[in-house]
Design a protein around this nucleic acid. Structure first.
Lengths: 207, 207
DNA sequence: TCCAGAACTAGACCGAGTGCAAATATATAC
DNA sequence: GTATATATTTGCACTCGGTCTAGTTCTGGA
């Protein structure tokens, strides 16, 4: 199954990405050229682009899994559970587990990476594609499993995904400001609960 | 006040943008180089970049005004009006007026431009900066005039702006599919009313 | 009229990304 | 094991967006 070819490919892929991220973290994404990354990874520039379609992907491919995470949560929820509740509980669980995607992980290597993504325009821009993908996948999941019209599902997906990103960005900003994940945790939980309560109950009461 | 210098600048700005859009509409955004645009506008490439910071801005600068539109609507609402109601009414009025920003304008030149923006990844990406700016401005307006906490204001802004874009994109897709703005109008109104009702009442009832 | 500063220009330059043809490594058939 | 088909890698030239430099032209104001 996993021939030499496949294994070698996987190793090359990892080697390029690791060389890239090390250089980017040390000197900044914009201050390192792909030629330098290729040299550090001991491949040609041409080969680098055979593995990663664009410079930004050297970094953001690590977050690719999360694109369909919300959709999976909705599809895998226990029968009788409301989608919104499943999403909220999953997010709160992510906070508890210090899942990097919640912005609440202060392991230096991870925090530095998240910071770089949020602070580098080109990387933020690339991340938005994941956000769009997440919206689409979540909308489909809601439509399939909650028996709700397509428009409603899509509107809900936009709201949920947008809110989750805002929560994660806020947490990341707090940690970047020097707080520990443990110190931020209670506020992160409060913010998440407030956000999901707002999603569930609507804005009418407050606006 | 408006000396020759200023007028000349404005004329050059318009000339470059018009030359660019004409070429882009004729052959596609990616198939025209900035060098060609500069040549068509009879300026040097360097001058072009003195007026527009990036190729994408040759197109999207036309939508720049709308960045603060939602915020202005909230700030200018009659006393006693709820922000969400003001935003909904403004959007519905935009539909009635066939405001291009609602996606419901089928004047060929405008529709073609909107289509190009939505279908060209680089342009869509650039538009997202406006979306982020709109979120920030709206959040501030809500915080200033509705006496609501900062987090609540920001969460609401993300939801509102995201929903408005979705509605506009849907309308544009419908017109691109060949329908007239008048034919689409009733659906557009229904979709908008549904969306704002969802924002106001929350997702709990349906999800 | 003259000067300071703004606007413009040509051309070299940089980095991201692609196309191509040659070279090398791996898998498979015999 | 050899030969052959198929991936993979490579160097190199090229395009395009965008910047830098240095020098030129134009405009507003004293």
């Amino acid at each position: 199954m996993t021939g030499l070819r496949e294994r070698k490919r996987a190793r090359t892929h990892a080697a390029i990405s690791e060389a890239a991220i090390a250089l980017f973290l040390a000197r900044g994404f914009d201050e390192v050229s792909v030629a330098e990354v290729a040299e550090a990874a001991e491949v040609s520039k041409r080969t680098l682009f055979a593995y990663f379609p664009a410079k930004e992907d050297l970094v953001v491919h690590r977050f690719a899994d999360h694109e369909t995470e919300a959709a999976r949560v909705v599809r895998a929820r226990p029968p009788g559970t409301r989608p919104l509740v499943a999403l909220r509980d999953h997010f709160l669980d992510g906070l508890r587990r210090r899942d990097p995607i919640t912005g609440l992980n202060d392991v230096p290597a991870i925090l530095a990476l998240v910071r770089m993504v949020l602070e580098t325009p080109a990387l933020r821009t690339r991340m938005i594609r994941f956000q769009e993908g997440a919206e689409r996948a979540l909308a489909e999941a809601l439509q399939d499993t909650a028996g709700v019209p397509a428009l409603t599902a899509r509107l809900a997906a936009v709201q949920v995904v947008g809110v989750q990103w805002l929560l994660a960005a806020d947490n990341s900003v707090a940690l970047t400001g020097g707080r520990s994940a443990d110190a931020r945790y209670p506020e992160a939980v409060a913010a998440a609960e407030h956000a999901f309560a707002l999603l569930a109950g609507g804005l009418a009461e407050r606006l």
